[in-house]
Each structure stands twice: as C-alpha cells, then as structure tokens.
Design a protein around this nucleic acid. Sequence first.
DNA 1: TGCAAATGTTTCCAATAGGAAATTTTTGTT
DNA 2: AACAAAAATTTCCTATTGGAAACATTTGCA
Lengths: 210, 210
Amino acid sequence: MPDEPYFIREEKLEVSRSQGNAEAAVEPLQLGKRVREIRLGQNLTLEEASKRTGLARSTLSKIENEQISPTFSAVSKLVKGLGIDIPQLFTQPKQSNGASGRRDITRSGEGTPHPTPTYEHELLATQLTNKRMVPFKTVVHARAFDEYPEWVRHDGEEFLYVLKGSLLFYTEFYEPIELFAGDSAYYDCEMGHALVSTSEEDAEVLWVTA
Amino acid sequence: MPDEPYFIREEKLEVSRSQGNAEAAVEPLQLGKRVREIRLGQNLTLEEASKRTGLARSTLSKIENEQISPTFSAVSKLVKGLGIDIPQLFTQPKQSNGASGRRDITRSGEGTPHPTPTYEHELLATQLTNKRMVPFKTVVHARAFDEYPEWVRHDGEEFLYVLKGSLLFYTEFYEPIELFAGDSAYYDCEMGHALVSTSEEDAEVLWVTA
DNA sequence: TGCAAATGTTTCCAATAGGAAATTTTTGTT
DNA sequence: AACAAAAATTTCCTATTGGAAACATTTGCA
C-alpha cells in the first residue's frame, strides 16, 4: 500500500463527499487533469504552453492525458513556465471556473491531509487553483528542535496563527520565542523556521503562505 | 471599489507573482542533495528508504547523486515515503542570500483595533510593512444581512477561518452558507461578501487578504 | 589486522519518457 | 455543409529512467 502515493493511485474508490458542491467524488489527484485546468485557466494552447515551458507540444499532451509520468525536470519546467503553485500539484483538483467569483469552502477536518514526521498538515481550499495564498492547518508533532534535520526554508512570506496549545517558534535569525493560542507571527520564509510543541497536547496552528 | 477597508488598501500589496517566462533555468540543482539530507536526517539507509518509498535502492542512489531526473511518480513516492515537505523539494535553501529575515510577533489581543459597525477588526503584524498578506482577527457584530448597506467588495483574494461561534457567509454569487468553528473559506474579494453571526456570542474569524 | 555484514555505487537491460512530424479532431468562416 | 486553420492527439523513434544484480566501499567486531 505505501507503494503508490494516494494521490496518484488511479483506480481508487471514489470517496463521495457530502455538501453542496455537487458531484463530489474526490478523484485521486491526476496530475494531468490538474495541468490541463491550469493551462486552460490561463487560456493557453498547447503550443503556447510549449513555448513557455520548453516542453514539446506532444509531451504536454501526453502529460495532460496521463500517458506518461513526467520527469522531475519536466515538472519543474511546468511549474516555472506556467507559474504553478507547487502544492497545487499535490492536492485535489476540482473545477473552479473562470471569472473572479470563485469560492471554496472547507469544512473542519475535511482538508487534504499531508503528513510529515514533524508536522501533520491539512491543506485547505484545495479545490481552487491559481490562488495567491496557500492556507493549511497543522498539528505540530515535533517535540524537540533536533527533530528537524535542517531549517525549513522556501520562498515567500508566511503568516502563522496558534489555534491550540503552545509552541516554540524557532527562526534562524532570532531567539526562539514561545507562542500561545491566539498569538500570531508573520515572517519571511527564506529565513529558516521550525515549530516545536510545548503544550501537553500537540499544538495546532493555522498557516498561510504567499 | 466600494467599501474597501482602508487598511487593506494602504498596505501596498506588492503581489509579485512571477508568471511563466519561457526557457528559464530549470532543474533547481540538488534535488538529490536535498533528498540525501532528508534521508540521513531520518537516519535511514538506502535499503530502508527503499522499503518506505517503493523505489529501488539503486534508483535512490542515482537520484541522490543526480544521475537521473526522477519521474513525477518517483518524486511522489519519495514525498509520501519520506514525509517530505513539498515546498522544500522545489526550492533552494538559499543561504545568507536573504536580506529578508523579517519577523513580527503579535500577542493575542495585542493587535491594532479597527472597529466598524458590523465588524470589529484587530489588525495583526502591523509592525511589518510591504507585506504580501494582510492578516486580521475579527469579531462579527452583524446579526442580520441588512445591516450591510451594500456588498463589501475589494481587490484580491481572501482566506477566512472561523475561530469561534458560527456565522452565515453571504456571497454575491452563491447561496449563503453557515460556517462553524474550524471551517474555512477562500474566495475572490471582487465578489460581494459579508458575514453575520448566528451563534449566541458574536463569531470570531481570522482573515487573511492578498 | 582480517573478515563478514551492511551500505552504497555501477552495470546492464527492459520499460518508458520526450521530441519531431504525421494524423486526427475541433473551431471558425463563408 | 464544406473547407481552411488551429489545436490536440498519436505515431515513430531515440534518449533516459528504473530495477535487479553485480560490484565496491565502509563499518563493526573479534
């Protein structure tokens, strides 16, 4: 079972989801569909997308139709060329449709899970693509700073809000500071950062990246 | 735009989203290096990592030594099997490069108050300027939709998370929907929107605009 | 030191990704 | 409807990936 990542498995049963949004059926993520949505969302033809990404028209077609599994190099080109938000690729699709009247509701606990040894992420609003922000709720499993092999660093800015419990907020250029429920922080993600729970129960935080 | 809260307007959102530029240097070096760091950080041998990810020992070795560019399928297995934080894989650690090491902590209740008839905002992280996002916590005083003279509309996108209580989320193009603590929403702000508390106590929400 | 087990690398080859061009499908126009 | 142009898919081929096993290196221990 741990063989195929859950979001790639193709023939998996369709978990039907309650709630309005009609038609449910959370299809396991199909990278191709995702890419196609994003491309069409930008009104690009394969030819144009090809120019932007440097990938052949035929290759793009095959990727979108799930006929091949692109190499990391190809995915990188896609990401750069189409300005794709990385987490988008790893989260559920779902049509969001044009104009600026988009809306995506995520019920408590119904986000897309993404566990790591130190954090347990729950990605929110994953049905919308092309978002400026990436929101997710996280349970902080880490109990000591040395559980992190290295600083977490990436592009952009991050807003952090402590929902439950307390934690130590480590950053590369500042002293660690303890945060409690209701506290928040805003910081540049290029600066190494890491969280460590200090409360009895693992702390819970809300994170938004842009 | 009518009704745009001034604090959003003033915040100078410099949302610089790099859109697709052709060609571009791809293959952010050292995917392999990062994988190795992460694996060693977890004290795993290639053999163990192989079991966890379902990739052959030799394949892992080649990935780590940058001898091959793994397929998306392989990368996915890596991510799932080793619990890798996705953005970490696609971005460079970029060491001291960052002049950007800003950080702003806001203690619970210590934000900058900004009351209106319907909302009571508390602006967070106000010490930092030039942010991409504007986070604020809000108590929803409104008890009926008609307390709003007109739709609230402004530029950008908004993420909403219900901290306490329950409320009705009115939007211009959708049916109103009731949200409870823990629920969240992501929407385009050009679409009229408004909140109305339905719980005994005024609902509290966290808002992030970009 | 010597040797065995464990870990990591390389080789070989079958499977498959990616590009160019041919083919098919869709779209728009008269 | 018929045709042309645009867009997407498929074909064919070469280059590259990924797995099994051989090979090499390191580690641990007597």
